[in-house]
Design a binder for these strands. Structure first.
Length: 257
DNA sequence: ATGGCTCACCCGGTGAGA
């Protein structure tokens, strides 16, 4: 079973890109972030035509997350994190797909540092960590997948020195990610490729993709009963090279289930 | 090199992304 995550950066503006990638890669389950579309403007029919059922959590102009399943409709289990019911941003959706609890997330950016947005990012990670512990206690195969907006280590940044004071790389945020992982999750890409430099995002600016000036910020975390089934993972880098593409590339994992 | 892109908002300049 293949599970992928893709920050599409506008699902309607880049629908052709998304459909092209789905057609060539045919993942079983897909987590999408940054839909940038209100609930009523999700392209349900176009995805159905491509063979994917969907659940989604939209928002006007910003954020927005969705889970797709090939030849099925995911069973929605949650919209939003339990700690953040006053939060009006669409950053978490969860469903059962392929027998796995799939939590699809889009963490806050947190810039500028310091400031209220940065503090909110740390709070959001605490909420995610706490809820993740609840998921682990269920004892059902679970995965937290999406755009975490954090580079966990120096290896995940093309030029670590330049990112020291950025909200995606501040020590507080890296610690928040580490605290989350240490409650029992496995970072799939690092489990299989501990020493390889792997990027999932390249800025639009300054020819970043051609220079490979990238970051690893899209992650797949697996519960203890799922991690032993991990057989492969990768980044569909070539998608980032397409015309009018997202600034992220799709990331995928393969599970022997 | 903190943005030189790119998006959604709805038609022009603003806020946000990372």
């Amino acid at each position: 079973m293949r599970i992928a995550t893709y920050n599409v950066n506008g699902i309607n503006g880049r629908l052709d890109i998304l459909l092209r990638w789905l057609k060539e890669s045919r993942p079983d389950i897909v987590c999408l972030q940054e839909l940038k579309a209100p609930q009523a403007r999700f392209p349900k029919q176009a995805l159905e035509k491509a063979g994917y059922g969907a659940v989604w959590h939209g928002q006007k102009a910003w954020n927005g997350v969705a889970i797709l399943e090939r030849d099925a409709v995911p069973i929605l289990t949650r919209r939003g994190l339990p700690d953040r019911t006053t939060d009006d941003e669409s950053r978490y959706i969860e469903a059962i797909a392929g027998g796995v609890i799939v939590g699809c997330l889009y963490a806050p950016n947190g810039n500028p540092y310091p400031g209220p947005k940065f503090t909110r990012k740390l709070d959001w990670f605490k909420s995610l960590t706490r809820y993740g512990e609840t998921l682990l206690e269920f004892g059902m195969p679970a995965a937290l997948i999406g755009d975490f907006n954090v580079m966990p280590t120096d290896l995940d940044v093309y030029n670590p020195a330049r990112w020291q004071d950025d909200a995606l790389f501040r020590p507080e945020v890296r610690k928040a990610y580490r605290d989350l992982v240490e409650t029992g999750w496995t970072d799939a890409v690092r489990a299989l490729h501990p020493d390889e430099q792997i990027f999932t995002f390249w800025k639009y600016l300054r020819n970043a993709f051609a220079r490979n000036a990238g970051l690893r910020i899209d992650h797949c975390l697996l519960s203890p009963d799922l991690a032993p089934h991990l057989t492969a993972c990768g980044v569909d880098r070539h998608v980032r090279g397409w015309d009018k593409t997202s600034d992220h590339a799709p990331v995928w994992i393969e599970l022997s289930l």
